[in-house]
Design a protein around this nucleic acid. Structure first.
Lengths: 126, 126
DNA sequence: ATACATGATGGAGTTAACTCCAAGTCAACA
DNA sequence: TGTTGACTTGGAGTTAACTCCATCATGTAT
């Protein structure tokens, strides 16, 4: 698959795809005789995976290291697992924080509803 | 309360506090005769609130608007409530996405555990 | 009276993560 | 055979969100 199609499929600009490859956020993509990228199934899986992880806020640094480790073969299996465990934990903490903030917003909204209904009652008093 | 203390209390640099005030992310802080900021209780609540909301990823733009609305008095109560409802929903969606990603990491970690225990079994075979 | 800490301001600098651009290659089509 | 369109590269530009800096003012300790 070519850039244009990959770009459309994952809603990542072609520049971003090249950028990700350049900094090692996705493994190198093979080129045809004319130097043009041909994304393999494996490349596509990587692009999707990285997009997903980035959207969840995993740091680029950690993801680059993960990609590097996978390029080094089976000897890094354990390190990779540890890396994922660490990132999963960071993610969990962020989620906990965000849930707390959501609850705080909920009660703030609740307060506004109360204020507003009081205003209304005051207005309709004789 | 002065800058230094506020900065320490909320772990925000003094530059960041000034920056937030300058762009309207927190309401103006009163100054004493020498032009020095004296944070009131209300100011402190704002700093804390904004720090919390920013940590959860609420966009600066929306928060600036929220601050502006509160400065305009009671007539904006309903608009403020709507703004919070909208931001709460955006936050909820981000949380959902992140939880899905966390689950994905879980199963990836699970896979690594499997691979690793298989490797171990292979190594210990006679 | 002087030095120092703490603050003020305006504006420049930094970092991450893209995003854009100029100049060039190549294949396919009129 | 020339033009178009999809790519390539290296490098410059952009945006958000700070962060740093130079210079100045003032209250307090020595």
């Amino acid at each position: 698959m070519r850039m244009a199609e990959v770009s459309a499929k994952f809603e990542l600009s072609q520049d971003t795809l090249r950028y990700y490859e350049r900094i090692g956020l996705i493994p190198p993509v093979n080129r045809n005789n004319n130097g043009i990228r041909e994304y393999s199934e494996d490349n596509l899986r990587w692009v999707e995976f990285i997009k997903c992880m980035r959207s969840a806020g995993l740091p680029i640094e950690a993801l680059i290291e993960y990609v590097n480790l996978t390029q080094q073969g089976e000897s890094t299996l354990n390190t990779r697992k540890e890396l994922l465990i660490e990132q999963r934990e960071q993610l969990r903490l962020r989620i906990v924080e965000m849930v707390e903030t959501m609850e705080r917003l909920d009660s703030k909204i609740e307060n506004y509803e109360q204020s507003l209904s009081e205003t209304e009652r005051a207005l309709s008093r004789p």
